[in-house]
Write a protein that binds this DNA or RNA. Structure first.
Lengths: 218, 218, 218, 218
DNA sequence: TATGAATGAGAGTTCATTCAT
DNA sequence: GATGAATGAACTCTCATTCAT
């Protein structure tokens, strides 16, 4: 992802299988891809460096060659998570204009679209937050940073909607935004924990409708 | 066994209880109490037996004396969780009669009351579910058992409410029940992750209102 | 098992179940009996104090009440072993008179008779010798003491037989006595390891015949 | 062990072999060699992984790198035992032709030759058999397998000798074979327990002569 | 007489990490 | 670019032993 500025004189041959640069990229991608899946399914601590390496067809040493530590693998993954899940949602909200309903709608739609396409990244942020909470770890900080931007945007939207009288006022903006966020995260985790039980599309729609109107008949 | 008849003139309860039975109970409670908090805050795998023991003012050996393994500490805690959180909610739903709205209301109120009083037990079930998911562990089974009873009751209530036309029908019963459950769990975790940011009472009320009507103005 | 000779003034009431002295004796016997079997079948180190106690229907503490340590249980057992297996064999050899053939015969017969009646004690000495060899343990010394008396008697008999020309001379007395001793021990262990495969009587007779024609003048 | 080929110019083989393959082999040999001696002298259970490692100039981790468990160290050693002690004896018996006396002679000679050269491996099989007997362990099975081949060959030889009238018939083939086997094992253990007391050559010869005249037709 | 709570030393094992090759 | 040998710290668990009751 970090565009390693290419020297101009080096032309890139596709067919000749492995220039060093390509191989490097391929190994990194393999490692990150496997780590992502493993961190989600087994948890960070329960996933050993060896398992990640083997899953990617490499050895432990390679992980330490490319990333300096196990923690760094996760950090790299969290950078991607921000780029792939947080940024687009914020962008979508901004693109939706000023109307709080539109903005909330943008948030909810964006999250469910991203959740369908980048499910693992979304889950990573949520699950790691639980696993690292209270650890005092550097990673804990990174996770808080990640989440806080979305939470702020959501809270601001809720507050503005309440001011304009389109969202219920009995509940404080903080609490309401938190419940929405909680529902959002909860749904991802539920979906993940239930494996294939729930139809993704239906569940995503259920989530969207639910946020707006709860269980009540519309 | 030994009836330690307490003389009136000197009923001296010191630091350590007098009889073995009392001592046993005290140690077990201390151990379980500390383990509960630690499993939630650090996670099961990240919590060492030594830390549990020290937190309870004992040594590792004592943990193995009372519980035969670390896993058994958690299992004991999960038994209590079932008793203290699942049973009362099911009882409340049954006591609420036939009306689906009443039953859902009972579910939501019961969960938020229990959540206030037995917060840690509720969190334990939720967080351990995530940590043990896919582990193939015996504990994973226990956790599924624990959750499945409440999920079934909730789904049944939702289905019945849909049939009677009081709950929205565009969303399948499974999905709707799952979203409610997800919101429930998500709120607990959010509350926990946010530490003291949110006012518990307000947040619980936000959750209740939200389930029924979403963000919409009532 | 062994009738603990009662003091004369104390009449033995069979029906009144447990004078302290009787109970004491009963507990000690139970403990030693179980320990004997367990040390043989599991080995000393692999046998835990707890298992011994439970097998005797008592708790660990009782073992430490009667014997001061686990090692002491074994030592007590070794005292009995000397009394029950070494002494009678030496006595039998002495009772056989001067003739080396008679003495060797007495040794072999005595060992096979004792082996039939006190199998476990014989095995204990043999197996513990292997387990404690080179340990530098106090018990190692005790085991050497135990064995050395019999070995000396046997060697003396062999030497005398060689001098009189009734036992083969090409083999040194030390070596010949050792081979006999080794065969003796080896047979016990073999019998034990093979469980019920071998018919005890036949095997004992095989051993006796084997030894005799082995040492016979060609 | 390590063929330290000293080239004159400067192929400097220092303490540690140069290539990874050599290093691997050297470490494995060191570990196995020390483990063999320790298992015999201290017993398997009394030998700690740490002690094995230190004896080989490595750390515990290295043992787990090469062998995945302590048990696996022993298993590897048992594989070698089979190869180095059982196979050659069976081969020698087969090479001896049909005559039962020749075959028994081959057995006895082979065992005493191997016992002189591969003493530790022979002892390992015998001592571990005692230590693991009745353990229900996987290793117990391996040990039985190991022994049973030799026992079968010996029994068959004895039976055939009895049929041809060259071995005594009053004793059953099973019992006779067992006594021989017992004598064989007993002699190894005796030799080992007595340390340097006995002259190896003399003792081996004592054993051979003893067996022969023991089974001779009267 | 005997129990049961508790300890502490040490066992086998795992794993993130380092480094020479 | 990547491997494989090796380490060391930490973990779960075991067990002989002590001691108040």
């Amino acid at each position: 992802m970090e565009t390693q500025t290419q020297n101009l004189d080096e032309t890139l041959d596709r067919d000749r299988p492995a220039t060093k640069r390509e191989q490097r990229a391929a190994s990194i991608e393999a490692l990150l891809g496997k780590a992502l899946t493993l961190f989600i399914t087994q948890g960070y601590h329960a996933t050993t460096v060896e398992v990640i390496a083997q899953a990617a067809g490499l050895t432990k040493g390679a992980v330490y060659f490319y990333f300096k530590s196990k923690a760094n693998v996760l950090k790299t993954l969290l950078d991607r998570t921000e780029e792939l899940t947080v940024e687009p949602t914020l962008a979508a909200m901004n693109a939706a204009g000023d109307d709080p309903k539109d903005r909330l709608n943008a948030f909810v739609r964006s999250q469910s679209v991203i959740g369908a396409e980048k499910t693992e990244y979304m889950l990573l942020a949520i699950l790691m937050s639980a696993e690292f909470n209270g650890s005092g770890d550097e990673i804990e900080q990174r996770l808080i940073e990640l989440m806080v931007r979305m939470e702020n945007a959501l809270r601001e939207t809720v507050r503005s909607g309440q001011e304009r009288g389109v969202f219920r006022r009995e509940i404080g903006a903080d609490e309401l935004a938190s419940v929405i966020m909680a529902t959002n995260k909860g749904c991802y985790v539920e979906w993940y924990l239930r494996g294939g039980d729930l139809k993704g599309q239906d569940f995503a729609r259920a989530f969207r409708d639910f946020v707006f109107d709860g269980v009540a008949v519309a």
